[in-house]
Design a protein around this nucleic acid. Sequence first.
DNA 1: TCAATTCTGACTTTCTTTGACCAATGCCAG
DNA 2: CTGGCATTGGTCAAAGAAAGTCAGAATTGA
Lengths: 160, 160
Amino acid sequence: MRLSDSIESFIKAMLSQEEPAVELKRNELAEYFGCAPSQINYVLATRFTLDDGYVTESRRGGGGYIRIVRVVESGQQRLAYLINERIGSAITEEEAVRLIGQLVQQQVITLPEGEIMRAAVSGQALSVPVPDAVKDALRARSMKSMLTAVARQNRGALKG
Amino acid sequence: MRLSDSIESFIKAMLSQEEPAVELKRNELAEYFGCAPSQINYVLATRFTLDDGYVTESRRGGGGYIRIVRVVESGQQRLAYLINERIGSAITEEEAVRLIGQLVQQQVITLPEGEIMRAAVSGQALSVPVPDAVKDALRARSMKSMLTAVARQNRGALKG
DNA sequence: TCAATTCTGACTTTCTTTGACCAATGCCAG
DNA sequence: CTGGCATTGGTCAAAGAAAGTCAGAATTGA
């Protein structure tokens, strides 16, 4: 068995029972597995990505830590996946606005939340000197990030 | 637990019960926590900034003190300040997160709204190959755009 | 074999803590 | 008054304590 797989299992075991989040010390974990600390980063980068349904935060310096949060429950995974599919790696402002409108309509998000999202992906927000293609990519990432935040909050109770 | 966190909690506990302000002696507090007096300054500088919603004043010499005041503003005032003065043309993710947290704290926006905004300005959302300076500029525009949307909605539903 | 994946180590960045030195204030002795 | 001195708090740089990055070595699987 690969080291990475062991570390992955170890972390997932910590997360599995009711715990939606876990906090760990990079150096301690590396010590425990007898490997280089950067190995932990590798595992996080390859097995605990947003697409895998996890968000990680960390802090350096004295008392530093790494926190891993499971973000998508199996039931919602479908929805999140659909959203990801639909958005892809680029999306125009018009498409984004339409999609947000639908979400408000379906009461997945509130009207104020929809307005904020619309503002975030508006031409206003993105009027910076980069090519349109980059803007569309940026908009897609922004949308996915925001929708993930929504999914994370609606833990368990989403209506399609 | 970090020393800084302990000191932060201690001060916030003093502030929490109806007290909008607290006055303390730097040396006494340092003595109490068994640390260097300058540690207190560090805590103030990193956790009781204006972005966090606090103002600090102090006086040296005999009978000297440090006073920490929780600043109170209306939601519209705060929004206007952020949009017109604070954010400017560039802002880092850390600063943005701080400002958003403060808005949630003061109930200018809801927690889900805050999460969405945070998601919109996160490194995740902006992980596109452009220089940091451009990301900071993008983030500033995004923030102002979203906050403007919030301000627009609050208009009419607020007194003064 | 060879390309993709996994691992490592040196180097970087960020956050915390301390200590030496600086600056302001109030009080007294002269 | 006034100049010194004790009493505070302020600043800053350096040391310490994590975590992050990245290029390249090692390994694995087809």
